[in-house]
Simulated assay, not measured.
Amino acid sequence: MIRVARYVGAGLAAALLVAGCSKPDTEAAGSAATAAPAGKKLSIGFFGFAKANSFAQATWAGIQEYAAANNAEATFLDSNFDGPTQVNQLQDAVTSKRYDVIIVQANDGTAMVNPVKQAVAAGIPTVIEFTPVGGKYDTADPQIPGTINIIDPPTVNGDGLAKLGTEACASIGAATGCKVAYFQGFANYPLDTARTDAAVKALKAGGASEVIANFVGGYTPDSGRTAMQNLLQAHPDVDVVIGSSQALEGATPLAAGKKITFVGNGGSTQAYDYVNKGTWYGVYSVPEKKSGAKAAELGLAKARGQSAPESTVVCTTLTTFNCLGTKTTLAGQTADYSD
């Protein structure tokens, strides 16, 4: 997932699975300013979570590679996880018409609505990547007409983490009476709130005897270590811990000698290693570098007068295992990035 992701990052909802990989073009999604002249080098502005975030760096790597191979250049505008800063950055870019394509990885999907609308109105092809922009966090459908959306809906991420968590309970013989702790990423962060609520609801529905969700694990090993220390003091009998992969990298050593397993959110090389060794049961692994490359591909296509799908669900389109990484499903897979 998401820091998601110092990210991150995240089974999929049945309706999305049935709906398929992507929605076809619509008149709104296909319309844009006059197509760029053939041979013109185009510019991409990437409004990512934070330059210091490993998940956003995976997105950035995909964008850069695709841009360099397709007569374009890209710039990372660093908001450092600050919603208002990101809003101001995008508004300034639209006013100056600095970029031919805009890719938005929103810190706050509600706050970014107006600047994204401004970008679309200015005729700038705008790609919403990973986090929905709008008031809904349970869909990959465009909430702003004219945008291209490559999304891992936060509620779907939460459901996937819960599915892995339920399986993790069974893997350690605690399918009944299983006590699960869910580490929130950020407190009062729209993406995290939607994901947490979905995960807690699905864990309870899946049979967890108790779900503890009042600890903030954050997106760094240090914050995860602190959360785990507090968790073990209050709930030494916990069976499964779910959180961002970065947080769990700090939490895991504290479980040595205890019958605790983990489910990470964010498919870094470190997370894959923990799963392959059996230390963690699983990880919700979004192919974020591929997602970044796809965002650049579709944004540039639209800028050059070509068609682009308005909606793509990352986990059903860019992976063969719906982002649900276990020792079995990750066999032969390579992580997109390292923490």
Rank of each mutant, 00 (worst) to 15 (best):
M1G: 08
M1I: 11
I2W: 04
V8F: 05
V8G: 05
V8R: 00
L12R: 04
A13S: 14
L17G: 11
A19I: 13
C21H: 13
S22R: 01
P24S: 14
P24T: 15
E27I: 15
E27P: 15
A28M: 13
A32Y: 04
A32L: 12
T34D: 15
S43H: 06
F46R: 05
F49M: 04
K51G: 14
K51Y: 13
K51H: 11
A52V: 12
S54R: 02
F55Y: 15
F55R: 02
I63V: 14
E65K: 13
N70L: 08
N71F: 08
A72Q: 01
A72K: 02
A74P: 01
T75W: 01
T75A: 11
S79P: 03
F81C: 04
D82Q: 14
Q89H: 09
L90V: 07
L90K: 03
D92I: 09
A93R: 00
K97V: 03
R98L: 11
Y99F: 15
Q105D: 08
A106R: 03
A106Q: 03
Q118Y: 12
V120N: 05
G123H: 07
V127P: 03
I128T: 03
F130N: 00
F130S: 01
T131K: 00
Q143P: 11
I148K: 00
I150V: 13
I151L: 02
D152K: 04
G158S: 05
G158I: 01
D159Q: 14
D159C: 06
G160S: 10
G160Y: 05
L161M: 12
K163I: 07
G165M: 07
C169V: 04
I172E: 05
G173C: 12
K179M: 11
F186P: 00
Y189G: 11
D192H: 11
D192V: 08
K201P: 00
A202M: 07
K204V: 03
A208C: 15
V216T: 12
Y219I: 08
Y219L: 01
S223A: 13
S223I: 07
T226E: 13
A227R: 06
M228W: 06
Q229Y: 09
N230A: 15
H235K: 14
D237H: 05
S245A: 13
Q246R: 08
Q246F: 09
L248E: 04
G250S: 10
A251W: 02
T252S: 04
P253T: 10
L254V: 11
A256T: 11
G257C: 14
G257N: 13
K259Q: 09
I260P: 00
T261F: 06
A271L: 02
A271W: 05
V275F: 08
N276L: 10
N276E: 05
T279V: 15
W280T: 08
S285C: 13
G292D: 00
K294R: 12
G299N: 03
G299R: 02
A301E: 05
A301I: 06
A301D: 09
A301K: 10
A303Q: 06
A308K: 04
A308R: 02
P309E: 04
T312R: 00
V313T: 09
T328D: 14
L330V: 08
L330W: 04
A335Y: 01
A335F: 05
Y337H: 07
S338F: 06
S338N: 07
D339S: 14
